[in-house]
Design a protein around this nucleic acid. Structure first.
Lengths: 121, 121
DNA sequence: GCTTACCGTTAGTAAGAGCTTACGGTTAGA
DNA sequence: TCTAACCGTAAGCTCTTACTAACGGTAAGC
């Protein structure tokens, strides 16, 4: 598996992190700002931001005593590309497999004969 | 938030479920088949399949004593569309916000009415 | 120097997710 | 009918994770 893709999925799989992601899409925000509009504490937001940062989805920068977080367009675009690749491959393989209706049967205890006899077309 | 999108993210956020998803992209498989190639037990696979099914990503059909699972192209396409929408909106909003370099400052203790009123998520 | 504001990190807790074992139901075949 | 194969579900356990509270560190303002 693609660990980058999995990290992105895991990061956005949490509802709170998704909310943070959405809020940051409106522009840079400080941790303090984010926490004020969320039902969790500020440290919790910091932890979520760390996950998002490790996944390459956000960037942070210092501004005095504050720390501004913003989306990482590069990371977002990269994750999007991985997603597109996954969708395309999945649907492509699916369509290819759909053209050979040969689900393996009970006689495959030893392995998986990927391709087998032709019965009906 | 879009619950459908969140459900899809949550479903694919787990590594085991992602592995199942990938395997199913090669064609329909029985629970027994999936479990054999995964480091978890058959009941565990069943539970993951239920999550994927609830998220609209897979379909199941009976074949004798077996139960075949396959990708749900409709659900996959739908989730993909939601993703595309999310990426597009996020990057669009981000770019728009980037053109007004006015990060909120310390004088906003009462609230945050500064940004554009369209807070849409 | 002192105070205030903001933030990251740690420790500790509670809730949820994932896993296995065990059990019961359904279907195919002898 | 009896047996074997396949599957879903429930019960129980473990472990991850999301959260809060408390602490220390840094920058701005007095």
């Amino acid at each position: 598996m693609d660990t980058y893709l999995q990290a992105g999925l895991d990061a956005l799989g949490d509802a709170t992190r998704m909310a943070i992601f959405q809020k940051l899409s409106s522009g840079p925000l400080a941790v303090h700002e984010l926490a004020r509009t969320l039902p969790v504490s500020r440290p919790a937001v910091s932890q979520h931001l760390k996950v998002l940062k490790d996944a390459g989805l956000v960037l942070d920068s210092r501004a005095g005593t504050r720390r501004l977080y913003q989306l990482n367009p590069e990371g977002v675009a990269r994750l999007r590309a991985h997603f597109d690749q996954m969708w395309t491959r999945a649907l492509s393989n699916f369509q290819t497999a759909a053209e050979k209706p040969h689900p393996p049967h009970k006689g495959d205890k030893h392995g998986k004969p990927s391709r087998s006899r032709s019965k009906s077309v």
